[in-house]
Write a protein that binds this DNA or RNA. Sequence first.
RNA 1: UCCUCCUUCGCUCAGCGGGUUAGAGCACCUGACUGUUAAUCAGGGGGUCCUUGGUUCGAGUCCAAGAGGGGGAGCCA
Length: 480
Amino acid sequence: MKRIKISELLETKGQNQEVKAMGWVRTKRGSKNVAFLALNDGSSIKNIQVVIDFDKISIDLLENVHSGASVAVVGKLVPSQGKGQSVEIEADTLELLGKADPDSFPIQPKKHSLEFLRENAHLRFRTNLFGAITRIRHAMIFGVHKFFNDKGFYNIHTPIITASDAEGAGEMFRVTTLDLNNLPRNEAKEIDYKQDFFGRSSHLTVSGQLEAELAALAMAEVYTFGPTFRAENSNTVRHLAEFWMIEPEMAFYDIHDDMDLAEEMLQYLVKYALDNCKDDLEFLHERRTKENSQKPQNERDALELIDRLNFVVENKFVRLTYTEAIDILKNSKPNKKKQFQYPVEGWGTDLQSEHERYLVEKHFKKPVILIDYPKDIKAFYMKLNDDDKTVRAMDVLFPQIGEIIGGSQREENLEKLQKRMSEMNIPEDEMWWYMDTRKFGTVPHSGFGLGFERLMLFVTGMSNIRDVIPFPRTPKNAEF
RNA sequence: UCCUCCUUCGCUCAGCGGGUUAGAGCACCUGACUGUUAAUCAGGGGGUCCUUGGUUCGAGUCCAAGAGGGGGAGCCA
């Protein structure tokens, strides 16, 4: 007999038809004549109730059925006599597939701390919370590809191992097959990477952008969606050493087209979650609301989760220049009252996260896109404005997350690019292939990077990035 | 990397200003209960109080170092 997914069973009318369900027991409740199993198979946040009548099934069979055990049930799908569900299965046979010894199985039908579940990341999929996050994560991945496919973008697999360490997006993980106990040296006593696997020094990618640019300057509109690695010693709720990044790159787009695309994409993806993950979002909404009610008034969310998502879908993002932002911040109450840890003094320094949070959460109360940053605090490939002081960079700032997107119009003029590279000590000879696109048929083009897990934080309302990726990689942690 | 807090049965947490046999809820086991909704009620078992060293007549409690973890900051997506 063929198994039917629980999500499908829950949508079906109970008409005494014989069905088979397989899954993991969430809870077991019993009384003298009858027992109830809440069964889950990952297809939905909802469980199906299995009714065990001791006249039909021996009570001994239930001896090893505890939370976490896997079972196969064959029985009749009937309308439920109880209140919490519309249908249930009256079991005719119950087969224990795998027991879960309650003395050692760590996931119990109760609230666990997120820290505890992180240490049990191999089993945390078995909880309502991580089931919901996992389904939403899948939907968002699918939504990303659908968005770009519908717009005629091509997906490009950019390399995960790269030999260019010129980009400066962050510290890199070295990739090598050299014997670390016996490193080959050249005449200058330096490590001789000529003898390494690729014949040169190589690393895990920190961004697919440069390669995506190469593709965009032929295919016009492309995007990458792949793993990205940063060997920075960042210990925060917003950083991972291994994360997934979405990087579109578009020929013939200027910075304004770039911002339009970023805004459209974020709204599309949030709406995609609202439309496709209703049950899971409602669960997360409830959870966050409960959590909120236990916080002091001034730390509570202004909007509840689903309202916050709707708000982003329905409202235009605010756009302003870095210079305008500095003016607002300089004249802001917290700055005058010296409540910022880093006072806003002059033009030219980067904004601290407290400043970004003030703009988004207090001043505008909307997502904000900042443009035209000072050139000295941004990367070499960003297009210089006519003022010679600022570049056509844009950052999208979100409530509670901070920077969710960083992007720019790229410098397409060869001479200007070379000048910036020499100013910033980027070796041109390693980047000959990048320069070639500016030599041959260069065009204005733009792109941005979206940290997928940061989007997941926003959509799920979770507060730690380690909880929105199945197996987080952070400093001192690569378990599982 | 810096600042700060935490580590007590399987889980979540109490534990006073050092002083008898270290507590509770959940889970587990036993029993009760006419179909329960993280069922309920009664009883039971379960602890190298993170590790090492120190102070003390006496340390879960105080001090030091180490390990692991949380939160904040920096770097960024």
